[in-house]
Simulated scan of single mutants.
Amino acid sequence: MKEIRAIVRPTRIQKLRDALRAIPNFPGVTLFKAEGFTAPASANRRSVREELVDFSEKTMLSVVCEDDMVESIREAIMLSCRTGQIGDGLVWVVDIGEIHRVRDGSPY
């Protein structure tokens, strides 16, 4: 199993939701409010004041899925959240060792 995590623009969530729901047997997604800033080397030169207040709203998401679903989910995230601008976000995949349901302790 894998966990796909991503940080994206909150304004792209509606389009992302539609893209994920279109994937057959999509397992679900969890969203988190987040804040962040672009790597300084990637951004244009700014004043010290701008550097201190440059955090912008982001949405972090997590999807736990079978290995064979990773590519379709990753593509849906990247295509629906891409604007072509700095700050579009990141997507990464993490291996999962074990998952258990809280409800009854059974393996997922």
Rank of each mutant, 00 (worst) to 15 (best):
Thr59Trp: 01
Asp54Trp: 05
Gly28Tyr: 08
Val8Trp: 02
Ile4Ser: 02
Arg101Thr: 11
Val48His: 03
Lys15Val: 08
Trp92Ala: 15
Ser56Asn: 03
Leu52Asp: 05
Lys2Asp: 04
Thr30Tyr: 08
Phe32Glu: 02
Asp95Met: 03
Gly87Phe: 10
Val94Asp: 11
Asp104Gln: 09
Gln14Thr: 14
Val8Tyr: 00
Trp92Arg: 11
Phe26Cys: 14
Arg74Ile: 09
Val70Pro: 00
Ala6Val: 07
Pro40Arg: 07
Ile4Glu: 01
Cys81Gln: 00
Thr83Ala: 02
Leu31Glu: 00
Arg45Val: 12
Gly84Asn: 06
Met69Asn: 04
Gly28Pro: 03
Arg9Lys: 15
Glu71Phe: 06
Pro40Phe: 05
Val64Leu: 15
Cys81Ala: 00
Val93Met: 05
Ile4Ala: 06
Ser80Leu: 07
Trp92Asn: 10
Asp67Ala: 07
Val93Thr: 11
Ile13Asn: 07
Glu71Leu: 11
Ser56Ile: 08
Asp95Arg: 10
Pro27His: 10
Ile13Gly: 08
Arg9Glu: 07
Phe32Ser: 00
Met1Ala: 06
Ile96Val: 15
Phe37Asn: 11
Asp54Gly: 15
Arg12Lys: 12
Ser80Glu: 13
Thr11Gly: 13
Arg101His: 14
Arg46Cys: 11
Ala22Leu: 13
Arg49Ile: 14
Asn25Lys: 13
Val91Glu: 06
Ala6His: 03
